[in-house]
Structure formats: C-alpha cells, structure tokens
Computed example of a mutant assay.
Amino acid sequence: MGAVAALAVAGGGITAAVASSDGSSGTPSPATESADAGFARDMATHHQQAVEMSYIVRDRTKDEEIRRLAYDIAQTQANQRGMLLGWLDLWELPKVPEGAPMEWMGMGDMPPGKDGALMPGMATNAELTKLRKLDGRAAEVRYLQLMVKHHKGGIHMAEGCVDRCEVKVERRLAQGMVDSQESEIELMTDLLKARGAKR
C-alpha cells in the first residue's frame, strides 16, 4: 500500500504521511489485535469525548481564553481522530474493538467503566450532563477539571503506543499527543488557579 494522504494536525505541529505500517511500501499492515490498531481505535473514542466536552463549554461561557482553548482542543483532537480512523480504513481493520478497551496495553481485565466512562480519564454520562447545565465560571471550572483528568488518561494511553506501536508515524503522533497534552495540563492548571479552583 503506497502513500495515500497527508494531514496536518492543528496545534500539534504534526504532519503525517499515511502509508503502510511503517510509512514505506511493501510492509504488512498491523493486525487487528496489535497495539497499533488498538491505540487507533481507543484513542479515536477518547478524543471524541474531548471534542464533545470542548464544544459544550464553548457554548456555555463568554470567556475568550476558555473558548479559544476549547476550540483548539476540539480542532486538534478532531483532526487526530480523523487520522487514526483513516489508518484503520487503510489497514482494512474494524473501527470498533472486538474485545475490551485497552487490551492492547494489557489492561483488558480492568473493571468496566462506570456510567459511560469507557477508559481512564473519560468523563461519565452524569458528569457530561452536569457540564451541559452549568454556565459561566462554573462551566469553565468543571470543564478544566474534567479535561485535566481526560488528558492524563490520554497521555497514559499515548505513552503506551510510544512503547508498543510499530508504525513509526503513529508513534510520532502519540509522542506529539504526550507533549501537547502535558503542556495543556499546565495551562489548564493555571487557569483553574486563576479561578480559585483545584484540579
């Protein structure tokens, strides 16, 4: 399978040429149970919730700093999600895991998530419902708290891909996620402090 696409990821500074498993021709695609496929599926799901939360808070506050942050997170993670799902298409692999989330990290036996929280860091359905009902500073604080937790779970997963994935371009994307989300956690911690709240 030759190179078929290139996508620039907003905010992360990552441009990835999509090809076969290691970015060169003639290399077999990852297997469905591989870390490469597992990360692509699970992180696509994880990112989707971050996009959802970001658009919720963007509509619940007039604070330009929070709205900018939420927009940047939504755009970056939507673009990265598209890249991950695109790779699964290229590899002709299912986008929905056949087993439990995080099996590729050796975490398939972890207890089922509560109330819609499928993976570490993900918000529950109740937390999302509450976020939708808040306005102004209360919405900002809750969003920042949920997103710090969400990023920590995402960093853990991305570090798992850096250690386990075999596709070079996917490892680079995962490392970019670690770097950018660690930076965003620092920013969000400062924003919480400015609002008299804790992480």
Rank of each mutant, 00 (worst) to 15 (best):
G99I: 03
K95I: 06
S21D: 07
C161S: 07
S29Y: 11
L85W: 03
E166Q: 14
V57Y: 03
A74Y: 02
K114C: 01
M147L: 06
E103W: 08
C165H: 04
Y143R: 06
P112N: 02
E159V: 06
E33N: 11
R132A: 14
V18Q: 12
W87R: 00
D59K: 13
R81S: 14
L192F: 07
A40S: 14
P28I: 06
S20A: 15
L131R: 03
K149P: 00
E182H: 08
S34Q: 02
I66E: 01
P101Q: 05
G113A: 08
R41A: 07
T76G: 09
I185V: 15
E64A: 13
A6C: 01
S25R: 10
E184T: 05
K168F: 08
K149F: 02
M157A: 13
C165M: 05
G12T: 14
R67W: 01
Q80H: 09
M147G: 02
T61L: 05
T15H: 09
E159S: 11
D163M: 10
V167K: 10
D179R: 12
V141T: 14
G116C: 00
V148D: 09
R171S: 07
V167W: 08
M102A: 10
D42N: 14
V141H: 02
V57W: 06
L144R: 07
G86T: 09
A197Y: 06
A17D: 10
K114D: 11
R58A: 14
H150Y: 06
